[in-house]
Amino acid sequence: MMSNEHEVSLDKDVERKPKVKVERKEGEPTSAFKGASWGALLVGVSGYLIGLFNAGMELNEKGYYFAVLVFGLYAAVSLQKAVRDREEDIPVTNIYYGISWFALIVSISLMAIGLYNAGSIVLSEKGFYGMSFVLSIFAAITVQKNIRDTQRAKERD
Score class of each variant (00 low, 15 high):
Val143Lys: 14
Leu52Asp: 04
Gly98Cys: 03
Ala140Phe: 02
Met57Ala: 12
Asp13Asn: 10
Arg152Val: 00
Phe128Tyr: 15
Arg84Lys: 08
Trp38Cys: 01
Gly47Leu: 14
Asp157Ser: 04
Tyr97His: 08
Gly56Cys: 03
Gly39Gln: 10
Ile137Arg: 02
Glu5Lys: 04
Lys126Glu: 10
Ser120Thr: 15
Ser107His: 11
Phe33Cys: 01
Leu42Trp: 11
Asp89Thr: 02
Tyr74Pro: 01
Asn4Glu: 12
Val20Phe: 15
Ala153Glu: 05
Leu69Cys: 14
Phe102Cys: 06
Gly27Asn: 05
Glu5Arg: 05
Arg24Tyr: 13
Met2Pro: 15
Pro18Val: 15
Ile108Phe: 12
Gln80Pro: 11
Val83Leu: 13
Leu42Glu: 10
Ser124Thr: 06
Gly63Cys: 09
Tyr96Ala: 09
Thr30Trp: 03
Lys145Phe: 05
Met57Pro: 05
Tyr48Gly: 12
Ser31Leu: 08
Lys81Tyr: 14
Asp89Leu: 09
Phe102Val: 04
Glu58Lys: 13
Ala55Pro: 01
Asn117Trp: 07
Ser3His: 09
Gly72Lys: 12
Leu52His: 04
Val106Asn: 01
Ile108Asp: 09
Arg24Trp: 02
Leu42Asp: 11
Val83Gln: 07
Ile95Lys: 08
Thr142His: 06
Leu110Phe: 15
Ser31Lys: 06
Tyr96Asn: 13
Gln144Val: 07
Val8Lys: 12
Leu115Asp: 08
Gly39Leu: 09
Met1Lys: 06
Asn146Ser: 07
Met131Asn: 10
Met131Arg: 07
Val68Phe: 13
Ala82Gly: 08
Asp85Lys: 15
Gly47Asn: 09
